[in-house]
Design a protein around this nucleic acid. Sequence first.
DNA 1: TTGATTTTTGCAAACGTTTGCATTACATTA
DNA 2: TAATGTAATGCAAACGTTTGCAAAAATCAA
Lengths: 351, 351
Amino acid sequence: MSKRTEKTIVDIAEELKLSVSTVSRALNDNPNISARTKDKVKKMARKLGYRPNALAAGLRNNKSKTIGLIVPRISMFFPATISTIIQNKLQEYGYNLIICQSNDSYDQEVALVNTLYSARVDGLVVSTTLYTTDFSHFDVFKDNNIPLIFFDRVPKDYNVKVIKGDDYVGGYTATTHLIERGCKDIVHISGPLTCNLYVERVSGYKHALQENKLPFKKTRVFYQELTRDNAWQACEKIFAQTPYPDGIFASNDTTAITIMEYCRKINVRVPEDLKIVGYSNDPRTEIVTPPVTSVDQYPAMMGERVVAALMELITNQASATAPRYSQEIIPIQLIARESTAGTVKTGGKKK
Amino acid sequence: MSKRTEKTIVDIAEELKLSVSTVSRALNDNPNISARTKDKVKKMARKLGYRPNALAAGLRNNKSKTIGLIVPRISMFFPATISTIIQNKLQEYGYNLIICQSNDSYDQEVALVNTLYSARVDGLVVSTTLYTTDFSHFDVFKDNNIPLIFFDRVPKDYNVKVIKGDDYVGGYTATTHLIERGCKDIVHISGPLTCNLYVERVSGYKHALQENKLPFKKTRVFYQELTRDNAWQACEKIFAQTPYPDGIFASNDTTAITIMEYCRKINVRVPEDLKIVGYSNDPRTEIVTPPVTSVDQYPAMMGERVVAALMELITNQASATAPRYSQEIIPIQLIARESTAGTVKTGGKKK
DNA sequence: TTGATTTTTGCAAACGTTTGCATTACATTA
DNA sequence: TAATGTAATGCAAACGTTTGCAAAAATCAA
């Protein structure tokens, strides 16, 4: 309840008739402080209830032992999983993590970048907004040589450290899988093309079609934020007229699952009449009926790589030779489940 | 790339031949700085690429404009939703949020509390570990009169501001619902009793049984961490011998959903043979078949109340009269879905 | 005992702000 | 023009650390 309680190293010094510098060094286990003194100091610190002030230390050292993380939203499976990994991993290195969500708003992202810079984070990790195409708000970090890493949703044409999934291969693999299961008329529901990873998946989709001599039809591709509502609306368009598609490749699992619900409602059978592939391998894909085929992106691996790269950047911050940017690609894996089982009745023989 | 770039208010002052104090005040829109000067200062700040140093300001002001949040894990629906709300709401007030996860480890929780204190957060919001029964690590915050709020998983016998769900009523309502639907032999899968909210739900369960003259049997209650694996194992015990229960009240949705999967595997029909109620109203309850009845805890409301209470505490921090603690209870609502539809065949007539 | 090392400690500046108080500049009135 | 009041600015200390350098203390060798 007392007001002026905050003990500082000065208090410890006075109590022990030592200088503050000695106390500071003792607390930091500086090698040229005698073991006896260290002991005394630490005991007294405990006795007085001393709590280090990270702000003061940060100001002096010009480092905060804090990393900033900006993701679109932490309630989505993929960023949530990665955030968890990053946080737990960073803790091992003695770093704090400030997790922030941009809510897919460009303006919020800009604001967050600025406040995180003000907080003098020692590094920034970002998965951008769906709509971020101008990256100049990150320049502060680049210009001041503060470790900056993008993952998953990464910039195009902006030189920086990048760790991303293999989205082209993901799109290609998902589509090829549907084709192998006999699909001839495959709809693709993509995210907005302002986000480069969707561009890559679309191009994987396109390539797979070509390779199998299937036509690419503009009307069979939807570009939209991959929400439940949008998925439902897309379904209403898709199933408003015949012929129905026999396969759908959705660029996230929420969309895939919503499509399944719609199909149940209108009595389209999955996988018999329609096969569905999602993306991200959200655990929800396993609990719905039928379970949904999806593309695993190895979020744990990605998270670990992010932290590893971050630590590398922090360590080599001084050295001018160390490369500031590079691209690292995390593999994907298709997880086949019941939603793409069997072979479409109209389809040819299985390859 | 340059090394010594960081501009400070001193640089602005020199450039403009003003004193640092004037610059500081100008940037903070202090009323007794002329409009003309403010303008000049802000222009110059922009021109030089000045970025405020929150560490320095925080040190001087003894406030960081940052709030700490500790939750068991952000990948769970309930804490994730609340974290989102809290973060977005705090942003409106100009506060940063440091989201941390204890991973349900007491030791990690203690460590986090200490580092967050070191970071001199202006407030701390906590949902504790399943196993936190000693709360003395939070004393630092209480003793130094720093706003401290617990939500959902809150301490017992520790005087502090608390915002919790109505867990007693939740347990009572869920159980009563099952009884109304004709269940006579209801299993309850609870979390560990070290966490008080489960104690309350159990007592609600018990009360509902009593009220309906149904026996409370110890063998029908399981206390365990509510994970998928544990749920599966519990099922193996439950269905190892007859008679099977005709109702299960699970204290989270992961457990409820896993039970349903198990039932499908052993050909127990839900809801015909067995009715299931979960807890938290995780969106997953809607996408499984059949959809699972659950207890909504109004996470958005809870998040908003947390922030409101926090802001109140911060504002009244000085006033000695303002109450430091109190308990606020957020209502619950049962969302009936197909998993409890109809009436158990063996059961009496529906009320 | 002395001098030379080595180990341990202390001094004082610095990190970038904010703010109480003092001072200056300006405007107003008589 | 002088006196007065108000508006605008400046000085300097303070927030709690860390650290280069200097100084003191302890250890060792001769």
